[in-house]
Design a protein around this nucleic acid. Sequence first.
RNA 1: CGGGGUGUAGCGCAGCCUGGUAGCGCACCGCGUUUGGGACGCGGUGGUCGUCGGUUCAAAUCCGACCACCCCGACCA
Length: 585
Amino acid sequence: MKMSHMFGTTLRQAPAEAEIASHQLLVRAGFIRQLGAGIYSLMPMGKRSITKIENIMRAEINAIGGQELFMPVVHPADLWKETGRWFQIGDEMSRFHDRKDHDMVLAMTHEEVVADLARRDIQSYKQLPMLVYHIQTKWRDDPRPRAGLIRVREFTMKDSYSLDADEAGLDEQYRAHYQAYFNIFHRCGLPVISVGADVGMMGGSMAHEYMYLTSAGEDTLLICDQCNYRANRQIARFKKPAPKEEKAGEMEKVSTPDIPTIEALANFLKIPKAKTAKAFFVIGKFSEGVKETERLVFAIIRGDMEVNETKLANAVQAKEIRPAHEEEIAAIGAVPGYASPIGIKGAWVVVDDLIPVSPNLAAGANETGYHYVNVNYGRDYQADIVADIALAEEGFECPNCSAPLRASRGVEVGNIFKLGTRYSASLGANYLDENGKEHPIVMGSYGIGSGRLLACVAEEHHDDKGLTWPMSVAPFDVHLVALRGGEQEAEKLNANLRAAGLEVLFDDREETPGVKFNDADLIGLPIRITVSERSLKEGGVELKLRRETEKRTVRIDKVVEEISGSKNKLLAEINEKVVTIPFEE
RNA sequence: CGGGGUGUAGCGCAGCCUGGUAGCGCACCGCGUUUGGGACGCGGUGGUCGUCGGUUCAAAUCCGACCACCCCGACCA
């Protein structure tokens, strides 16, 4: 490709709104352009890199038996009504009407369509297992897109779907993906870790997320460096402290004027926060078929901990939860700031599992200005649900080995879900077993966003001058810079390199050397060769790798061979480095 | 949806307070000089100042409404 004719220019300054490196550099180097909030065009170079990423994904998924197909981005809503997600998913899914006034949706994922295909085309256990995938546009109307390509509304995803006769088959395909995903990320030059994850709107029994660790990430992970326990904070467990046993004291009401917070209460009573109980009110939303109901959840946790809202929502099996308004709290007779379940009738009480073993806590008296001391679970109040609803924090103990947990930020670049029969059962995607008995197909789904992956690779591979692409995802292999006196040789070299199967970005522009070198550093192709009067005088062309500072001269007749060699070496280095974190439940 | 911020040329910004018909740097076009790390000179192109409405003889500037985008939170596979 001749740079003089390439669509998309490099920019000296990034748009003011670009804050993180990958966003700034991808815009400045001319890989992407923004059309709207969370909506981007891929420029020719961006498209080339994405294509490379997608071909790596194809290769790895094909290797575990995947068959590529292509499913629509516009779906009739009926299908989504059948699985219930039409009712469960909120504004994140965009809906519209076609000219006949039918409800339609923009696809945010394709479980429904795969299950629909399966119910039409799969009848027998002999057709299973099966693995299909596609690379398609998804639309998710995220309330807050940000950080360039990291979090967008329209994006392309490679999503695979496994179809199996039973759980054992699903497990096998799940594990195959578990490894294939590590291969994909490492072939793209991106270090990732896998973490246990919440199943979220997908439903199902098990999920892992692949995380690229970076401060630009918006997920928080808890990691144990000793035993390798790793989990998204949304579900992270930890070993709770064992409270000292104490004889239950007599519950007593004490005056605590103007003390509505745990902090103030602990100070006032001169007790640690661990000796207090905190009330937390949320409104849970539940769907029963088509109907949606709301219910107040009265959660109790020890004062030294925070509530994990994902765990709480899972404990009560709510579709979503939101903080309760003061009137909603007051409606059950509780007093915000001084609330506890003591003396409250008819509330739905969830307590953290640390509460029943923590004796003699201070808790609200449901009367402004008063708390109880020596409150004991079981004696003074009961719960409807006892569950782990506490948020893991850095320094808390690992649930497996008790070493202190470390917190890290990360970007979710891929995820895998064991869906089970949630979609097949609701859509009637069944097969007949050896005995002619009908069963729902057991499904899994597995996704990687290609644009987000590209952004993470850019985030990982850059320096103060620009991008430093791994060979496997660089838009071109070689940046060929023609300087004064080297134009004609460069033209010939461009043709020869291309004839040898190399991808060349040929800077044939009439620019000063400084501009060309700076653009080459910004774009960040792994190999740069410079042809000029000077290099010719020195015996050929100058070769420099982007990540190194040394330059060396290569004879003209050896250039093609040298570049091919360098390319293969750079590719081999990436493939050598595959690191896998062993599969864990 | 709550809080904060920004909208003036492709990008970065000034002008707004104190109203008088728009400017700087980069980029872009032409000519000339220059040519191994973001050259220089001369001459140019390009903007209904986010939109709509109001005040005024006159609005980028003052007032109001709306829209868009960014950041934090809520939210999110």
